[in-house]
Design a protein around this nucleic acid. Structure first.
Length: 593
DNA sequence: ATCACGAGTT
């Protein structure tokens, strides 16, 4: 027998796992056996029996055949109960064809069967799945007409509907008008903001929740962590983690998944790995979060290794989503052969059908490696019509490898599908600029102006002493401008002294100016401003963490490497979709991005 | 019985 030592603190141990999904033990054949018993007993047509049978059907695994049986029971019933109706609407809403719920309801509506307050949440959920704002509005109106529009569950479902249709103003109006809110109300609104990319609003609302004296639950915290992941808010994410442990919510696998995702997207991959390692039971989603975290933080080999471990050690069958993560890890790590092997295994070993996204990954893999022709061949051989995203991926590869001819071809294909996407014009003009075709650059710029498309301004944020400072390119309006200007000048001087040669290939704007003007532009890229600010406002040696809204340009990337060396600083820069960890003159991406 | 949550290519 061992006794626990009083001197050493107990290791933090994950709380026991709660079941996150109940796999109903009931199968259709078991339901039919029960039905047979009920028929023999002469009870099959009683209300409670019919209700029970339909409820069992809706909980059965797999659901679809049982659902058909529920519909059969319903149609054979002489006097269907409202419970049966609602249960069927609910089940249909959760299938892959939720519009059937609306049709089913419409039939009842035409037969003048009155809805009750269980009916609307299910219908609204169907509309949420379908992103059917107009149908949702009509149901909202019907709920109001039948006097159920102010039911808490109905209003929660309305908020969810409007959030899933990106109608945040409508959602907020419903939320604001509620005099009474439960935790679901708050969670729905917080997650609605997160899913629409409005992390700031989500975190503000979380603050309101706390001020209102409401206790967050595990789902609230998942939402808060997602908001931190979107915003790259590491400090708040750490606070949320501490809160979760204190209130013993870290046993849930969804919470741990959100933690891994948050730490990964804040560039803190070691902490993500710690959470992963201390999780005793792992499922596909948790593995995916970890593999994706490794992928975006430049650990391509490790991501592939984890994928193989997931399959072999945990015996988990991969799905299409985890394949996207591991394939993108290959493409960003330059792991061509691994990527090809995995793409092949997707089909042959796991019997999955490659989706558009997987082709997109493979186009990226080949294109990034400079095999532009091969990437184009792959697109031509795709079984379905390539999306504009696939063509855009190819366009990006053409920019990186200065392939004007195929770049123009890709642009033409994109134009046919989505002409107003500003990023594409910028990419094309980058290609022209990279080979010195300035007149074509100017042509693209004029075309953009004519179409009223403008380049999204670059914006970077850095957190210093718990305060968020944001810098927009060429913005001299903020109150630190004098201080920042001086810091930038000093930094630029040190960079020049260290031998940095400005790389103006990606400078698009105002090309009528000379080379000098283009160099001047580079100095004011928002990530450089944020780093210059961080250098003067933090003690030497502090890691600088910057989050940027666009991809980092080649010049900034080279400059960051040099800064990490000459200032002896680590810089963690998150761009639009991945991380660059600069340390001692090199970057975790291996200059392959 | 009914409403909320975790992973994704550009």
């Amino acid at each position: 027998m061992t006794t626990s030592s009083l001197t050493s603190p107990p290791l933090p141990r994950p709380r026991p796992q709660y079941p996150e999904s109940l796999d109903g033990p009931t199968t259709l054949s078991e339901i039919k056996q029960l039905q047979a018993v009920l028929i023999k007993a002469g009870l099959a047509h009683t209300r409670p029996a019919q209700n029970r049978l339909v409820a069992l059907c809706s909980a059965a695994r797999p659901p679809d055949p049982a659902l058909d049986h529920a519909l059969l029971l319903f149609s054979r019933s002489r006097k269907p109960t409202p419970f049966m109706r609602n249960t069927i609407v609910q089940s249909l809403a959760n299938t892959s064809a939720p519009y059937r719920a609306l049709r089913f309801y419409f039939a009842a509506h035409c037969a003048a069967v009155p809805p009750n307050h269980h009916t609307f949440p299910a219908l609204l959920k169907a509309c949420s799945h379908l992103h059917a704002l107009s149908e949702g509005n009509q149901i909202h109106a019907q709920a109001l007409k039948s006097g159920l529009g102010y039911d808490m569950l109905v209003r929660n479902a309305l908020i969810h509907l409007y959030c899933s249709c990106a109608a945040l103003d409508h959602a907020q109006r419903v939320f604001d008008k509620m005099l009474e809110r439960d935790i679901v109300t708050w969670n729905t609104m917080i997650n609605g903001y997160v899913q629409n990319g409005l992390a700031r609003d989500a975190l503000d609302l979380f603050r309101d929740l706390q001020l209102a004296g409401v206790w967050p639950d595990a789902i609230t915290m998942v939402g808060v962590l997602s908001a931190c992941a979107v915003a790259g808010a590491l400090e708040l994410g750490k606070w949320a983690h501490a809160y979760i442990e204190k209130h013993r919510m870290d046993g849930r696998i969804s919470v741990r998944t959100a933690l891994i995702d948050m730490y990964s997207k804040c560039g803190y991959i070691d902490r993500a790995l710690e959470v992963f390692k201390s999780t005793p039971v792992r499922n596909l989603v948790l593995w995916t979060a970890m593999i994706n975290g490794l992928a975006i933080n430049g650990s391509g080999h490790k991501a592939v290794e984890f994928f193989d471990r997931m399959v072999h050690d945990d015996d988990i069958k991969p799905d299409g989503v985890v394949f996207i993560s591991v394939l993108s890890a290959c493409s960003h790590g330059g792991l061509i052969d691994e990527g090809r092997r995995l793409f092949d295994e997707l089909k042959t070993r796991y019997n999955l059908v490659p989706q558009m996204e997987h082709y997109g990954c493979m186009v990226d893999l080949l294109g990034r490696a400079g095999r532009i022709e091969e990437a184009l061949q792959l697109i031509r051989r795709m079984p379905s019509e390539p999306s504009e995203i696939v063509w855009r991926t190819l366009l990006g590869a053409c920019r990186a490898h200065r392939n004007v001819q195929i770049g123009e071809l890709a642009m033409k294909e994109i134009q046919r599908r989505e002409p107003r996407h500003h990023g594409d014009h910028v990419l094309l003009s980058n290609i022209y600029a990279s080979v010195g075709r300035w007149e074509d650059v100017a042509y693209v710029r004029r075309a953009m102006k004519r179409m009223g498309i403008s380049k999204e301004p670059g914006c970077s944020i850095i957190v210093v002493d718990g305060r968020i400072y944001s810098f927009v390119v060429e913005d001299a309006s903020h109150r630190h401008s004098e201080e920042v200007r001086a810091a930038l000048e000093r930094m630029a001087r040190r960079l020049r002294e260290a031998g940095h040669v400005p790389d103006t290939r990606e400078v698009v704007a105002r090309v009528e100016g000379g080379e000098e003007e283009r160099e001047e532009k580079l100095v004011h890229h928002s990530e450089k401003v944020a780093v210059a600010f961080g250098l003067i406002r933090t003690v030497p040696g502090t890691t600088l963490r910057v989050v940027k809204n666009l991809r980092v340009c080649a010049d900034c990337h080279a400059a960051m490497k040099l800064i990490s060396e000459i200032y002896g600083r680590e810089i963690v820069l998150r761009d639009r979709n991945r991380f660059h960890h600069f340390k001692s003159g090199s970057c975790s991406c291996g200059d392959y991005w």
